[in-house]
Design a protein around this nucleic acid. Sequence first.
DNA 1: TTTACAAAGTGGTCTGACCACTCAATGTGA
DNA 2: TCACATTGAGTGGTCAGACCACTTTGTAAA
Lengths: 215, 215
Amino acid sequence: MDKQSTKMYLQIVRELRLLIQSENIKPGGKLPSERELVERLKVGRSTVREALRSLELLGLIETKRGEGTFLTDYRNHKLVEILSTFILQDTKTINDVHLTRQTLEKEAIRIVSASPHLMDLPVWESLLIKLDEEGTVQREDIIREILIVSNNRLSLKMWFLLKQYGEEPYQGFTNEDENTYLIQLLQAIKDGEIEQAVEAYNAWTNLLTKGRENV
Amino acid sequence: MDKQSTKMYLQIVRELRLLIQSENIKPGGKLPSERELVERLKVGRSTVREALRSLELLGLIETKRGEGTFLTDYRNHKLVEILSTFILQDTKTINDVHLTRQTLEKEAIRIVSASPHLMDLPVWESLLIKLDEEGTVQREDIIREILIVSNNRLSLKMWFLLKQYGEEPYQGFTNEDENTYLIQLLQAIKDGEIEQAVEAYNAWTNLLTKGRENV
DNA sequence: TTTACAAAGTGGTCTGACCACTCAATGTGA
DNA sequence: TCACATTGAGTGGTCAGACCACTTTGTAAA
């Protein structure tokens, strides 16, 4: 290992990334133990731990005493806590998070309702039925479905992250207007009416944004 | 300090936030030294360092050997960079990268050409003139300008990364058609014609995509 | 006063030592 | 044979102390 210039623990972060790649460690999979990493990378344990702790704070790995260190599914949320206390004090920043998330959502809606193949999927009808029966559906569930169907894994992952960052204590209280927009959105997707779908989405988003301000 | 349940270094992260708040440390300001924190918080130095290294990886603090630890401007957090290396690693589909980048670009175009305030900026005219005089403008320069003006730092950051990651060996060979679309795009922005701008962008993108396939 | 050098302070890394916890192999008793 | 208790190896969590490399500062010499 270089002992110069670049900080060791950053080297190790990089080294770990390569290791994960070359050994094809999947989310949930186990990383080598700290002591093994010490031997393989020829560094001290404290240095290894600094790298691991950093990644843990990012939510990329998870450690369990007595068991080991595991690669997580990025959906983990220490980030939220840390960032919301440090970074997201700035309203401009948090607004960026919301807007960027919405950008991804809108594009997915456009893609889905522009593709005959996708808009014909039975899932939209199912959601409409569920909405009718149960009176409410989690916002997240619908959007997630759209993102998944739009078939861009990268966008989907970014969306997951942004969703967590911008998490608001949104009470799933049922709002009549909200359901109206939801139905409009789903219906427009089914019909392949792109602009109508986006319109419904915007109206819906507006509603939620206002609700947020009131709280 | 609790020695139970919650991990020490997370406690310290929290402790540091309080300390920064109570001592009113501004970005650029100096934090207590590691050894001082050891005394104040009654923990080992390695534990303090684990907390500090985590915050450093997040870009929240900056350390200089021989000098000390400093609070950075929150807006410079490296989060996006770190996460991207992990997210992009197993998302091999380069196509996703391109599409996601284009999503951000399109949204920025929409935002700019939907705002009277932004579409009136002199920069569009300047680009048109430059295009006329020099016969060509870097694709990147125009898009970057649009992204910057659209005023979402997070999107801008993501765009920058995606651009780097999805880098294609695009030869800046001047194409007549390309210039046509560029002019259309800039003109549409100036006129606030959203859909026209997006249309021009799509045509342009198509052209480039085809060019890529030919190579 | 200016310059050169030593000392103190700070982050960077390593080592070795315990502790707390998990898990599986082992052994024991029914 | 089976169910249960025990134990030991492996793992992360924390601490203390030691150097190293570097910067700043104070002091003594020119």
